[in-house]
Design a protein around this nucleic acid. Structure first.
Lengths: 150, 150
DNA sequence: ATCCGATCGTGGGTCGCACCAACGATTACT
DNA sequence: AGTAATCGTTGGTGCGACCCACGATCGGAT
């Protein structure tokens, strides 16, 4: 992006959807750069964090919790398992399922990724005061809640 | 997404970057659906709007104004020109450039797209009061301004 | 106990958006 | 005159978010 988007059309510059997408793009770029330092991507972070916080789960469950498609979970878990950050084991109670568990290495990596996330967070919200950050968070939370429930 | 993202990991649910990306994803989905009804996409809308508002321009200029890469402008303008919404003509004053102008059909389509955009806007911001919408807009504008200037 | 529908993992795709590299042609700088 | 910068264009890459279809397995109804 760099020197791009110096002056978007007036009809866009004030539209919330445009603003939302632009800031999200910036945030995504920052996140990608941060995660890239760990040689991982957003999907990996979401999955690792979900496992670290809520314990082992099936791939379908992980997908639902993280908002990732089942088929995309497969690939991401493959990566994580290949790195030893996660273990895939058949569920003895339901032979359709795999139980995914985070390893110690995975937990450590998740913690490191968390620090990266925090740093990105601060960079992103740098121009906002603490109360403004809360405001933004609350507004976005409400939007999200409204649009994901039904 | 549908039934997805019912409960994201706690570590994500409150992070602004996550909220931003999620709401932006929702907004993008709404926008895509809206634009799809016109058989167009986001890039087309941005370009058409820029042309409608600020008059004819070279492709490189359009790219800079809309935050679209030069190479992506080529394809989008091809589409628009193929639909007769836009005209591509060589610039007599600078033979490197093409001058892109919007046609009457293009102007009409831009107006229709604008209405779609407005509807999406209202859908997206439905759960927010007028002052809250302003708040959100102002916060996002400040974030964007901070991150695109240097 | 059998059948039917739902669920799971997996592999194969598509699409949109944001980027990058490189080329020939042309223009601007000095 | 010679070099640097710009423009349009082609042809890539990567990420995220989807979709469909398959075989295997499980659950509930009969």
């Amino acid at each position: 992006m760099d020197s791009a988007a110096p002056q978007s059309p007036a009809g866009l510059r004030t539209t919330p959807t445009w603003l939302l997408n632009q800031t999200a793009t910036h945030a995504s770029r920052l996140l990608s750069e941060g995660f890239a330092a760990h040689d991982l991507r957003g999907y990996h972070y979401r999955l690792l964090t979900a496992l670290a916080e809520d314990g082992p789960a099936s791939q379908a469950d992980l997908g639902r919790r993280c908002g990732i498609d089942r088929s995309d979970v497969v690939a991401a878990i493959n990566d994580l398992a290949g790195r030893g950050l996660v273990v895939r084991a058949p569920d003895p109670a339901d032979r359709r399922r795999n139980v995914i568990s985070i390893t110690d290495d995975g937990t450590a990596e998740a913690r490191r990724l968390g620090h990266t996330l925090d740093r990105v967070q601060r960079d992103l919200l740098a121009p906002l005061s603490a109360t403004e950050r809360d405001q933004l968070t609350r507004l976005l939370t409400r939007l999200l809640a409204h649009h994901s429930r039904q």
